[in-house]
Amino acid sequence: MTAHVIPVQHVGQVREFAERLLTSVVRDAVVRDAYGDFTCSPAGLWLALSAVAAGAESGTARELRALLGVAGPEAALAVNEVTAQLAQTQGVAVATAVWARVAVYRAYRERLPDVRFGHLDPADVRAIDTWVREATGGMIRELPDRPKGEELLLLVNALELDGTWVSPRFKQEETSDQVFTDARGVEHFVPTMATSLPRPSYAWTVEAPSGAREDEVDVVALLCAEEAGRRPLQVSCVLGAPGRGPEEVLPAAWAAREHRRPIDADAVTIALPRLHLHTRLRAEQLLASLGAPLAVSDRADFSGMSPESLRVGRVAQESVLRIDEEGVRAAAVTQVWKRRLGVSGRVPRTRHIAFDRPFGLVVFAGDTGLPLFTAWQASAPRSPHV
Rank of each mutant, 00 (worst) to 15 (best):
E63W: 01
E63S: 08
L64K: 02
L68G: 05
L68V: 01
V70M: 01
V70Y: 00
V70L: 05
V70R: 04
A71P: 02
E74W: 01
E74Q: 03
A75P: 05
A76Q: 08
L77V: 11
A78V: 04
A78D: 08
E81H: 04
E81G: 00
V82L: 14
A84S: 13
Q85F: 04
Q85M: 10
Q85T: 12
A87W: 00
A87H: 05
T89D: 06
Q90A: 15
Q90G: 05
G91A: 07
V92N: 05
W99C: 03
W99L: 05
A100L: 09
R106I: 04
Y108K: 02
Y108D: 01
R111D: 10
R111K: 11
L112H: 03
L112E: 03
L112V: 02
P113T: 06
P113H: 08
P113A: 10
P113G: 08
V115L: 06
R116W: 00
G118S: 12
G118Y: 02
H119V: 14
H119R: 15
L120Y: 10
D121I: 11
A123V: 10
A123S: 13
A123G: 15
D124E: 13
D124G: 10
R126I: 10
A127V: 14
D129H: 14
D129G: 09
D129A: 12
T130E: 15
T130P: 07
W131D: 15
W131N: 15
V132H: 06
R133P: 05
T136L: 09
G137I: 13
G138A: 09
M139I: 05
M139W: 00
R141L: 04
E142P: 02
E142Q: 14
K148W: 14
E151A: 02
L154W: 01
L155Y: 05
L155P: 00
N157I: 08
A158N: 06
A158T: 08
L159S: 04
L161E: 02
L161P: 06
D162V: 12
T164N: 10
T164H: 11
V166Y: 03
S167D: 12
S167R: 15
P168M: 13
Q172I: 12
Q172L: 11
Q172M: 10
E174Y: 10
T175S: 15
S176V: 11
D177C: 11
Q178E: 15
Q178V: 00
V179G: 07
